[in-house]
Amino acid sequence: MSKEAMPLRVVICTKRDLAGALILNQMLPRLAGDTVMVLLSDKTRAVENAVPELAEMKFLERDLPIDTLFPLIDRDHGDDAALATFAGLARRYGVTIQVVEDINGAEGESLLRGFSPDVLLSARFSLIFRRNVFDIPRFGTYNVHPGALPRYAGLFAPFRCMLDGGDAIGCTLHRVDDGIDTGPVVGIGWLPVKPERSLLWHVLNTYQAGLDLFFTMLNGLRHGVVPRHLEQDRSQRVYGSLPGREAFDAFRAKGLRLFDPQDYKEILRGFVPTDGTVLEHVIAGAALEHDIAGAASEHDIAGAAVEKGEASCCCAHA
């Protein structure tokens, strides 16, 4: 006779951006019956303002959906859409969602200790966990990293994999330790590379494979099964930073694109109520039409994003 599945107390740490919203839409329906707390980061990297392509990615991942589209949806309580905004997720699933600036400080540590989590998952969170925090969950703290470790440690891993000509992007579930992307690995899931699709499409779809691994592990934990971990071969580790102009030029020279208007609209439509008017209003209002769909080239949208002087945020990169 099998053990009865045990409900768990789960903390999800992710980013307040488009990918973070997609991650929560994938995770929260699968955690029914568990007690869940969601923590969001708003970390920014000033260096992203200096490179037009990074400013472009930031605009697409955060500024347009978070500052323009989501508020329009939330104003009208667009709860009949397939996907929910952060506010909609809190309503739909009855979870607490809050932004934290310092997860390792006294306030962040107190918040986690007060919740008493069984397990914590970081997916695109950007903030580095210190031992005083990652040792709190009784089953440990895990990270879903959008790159196959140890080869694609660090930032902008999907971009680096595509630039290298990889035929699939790995997504690694690993336990968090004192390093950065150095902890023992539970497993690696894979997203086949589709050259006709944009980098942004790959970034937004890479996490699913790692989340599936997490839920497999979680199901084991519910029944008292401790996951197996494999130490990384540090000799194979390559840590990447944010790319510069030469890397982006090489990416385009391979016929690859950072974004595609149709890819992007296809993803955003999932958040829009069934009549579709919200997204069309955004397009008509020039947020999409001028900056994306009407852009003659990636350089046009990148330049427009830089001119807006937006603060950096991306962790497509992390």
Rank of each mutant, 00 (worst) to 15 (best):
T85Y: 04
A284Q: 15
M37V: 08
C161E: 13
I128W: 11
T44F: 00
T68W: 13
H281Q: 14
A84H: 07
G33Q: 07
G179V: 03
D34K: 09
P243C: 06
A284R: 09
Q208E: 15
G170K: 04
D260R: 11
G309W: 06
P71F: 04
G244C: 08
H145L: 09
A157F: 01
L39I: 12
N132E: 13
S235T: 12
L83H: 02
L69T: 13
Q236Y: 06
I103D: 01
A316Q: 14
R151I: 03
V282S: 01
S122F: 03
E109V: 10
V95I: 05
L8I: 10
C13W: 04
A153H: 06
G165E: 11
F70E: 04
L72E: 12
G170P: 02
L218C: 11
W201H: 15
L24P: 05
V36Y: 02
G294H: 04
A157M: 00
V51I: 15
R228N: 09
E53C: 08
G210A: 03
F125E: 04
M162A: 05
T44K: 06
R130A: 08
G108M: 06
C171R: 07
L191Q: 00
H174L: 11
H202D: 02
D42Y: 00
G140F: 01
M37H: 07
G189V: 00
S297G: 11
S241P: 05
A87N: 11
I66T: 02
R269G: 02
D167E: 15
D249C: 03
A148R: 05
D263W: 06
A302M: 10
E266K: 13
D233S: 15
V185L: 04
F251W: 01
L69S: 14
M57I: 15
A293Q: 14
V306P: 11
D74N: 14
D102N: 14
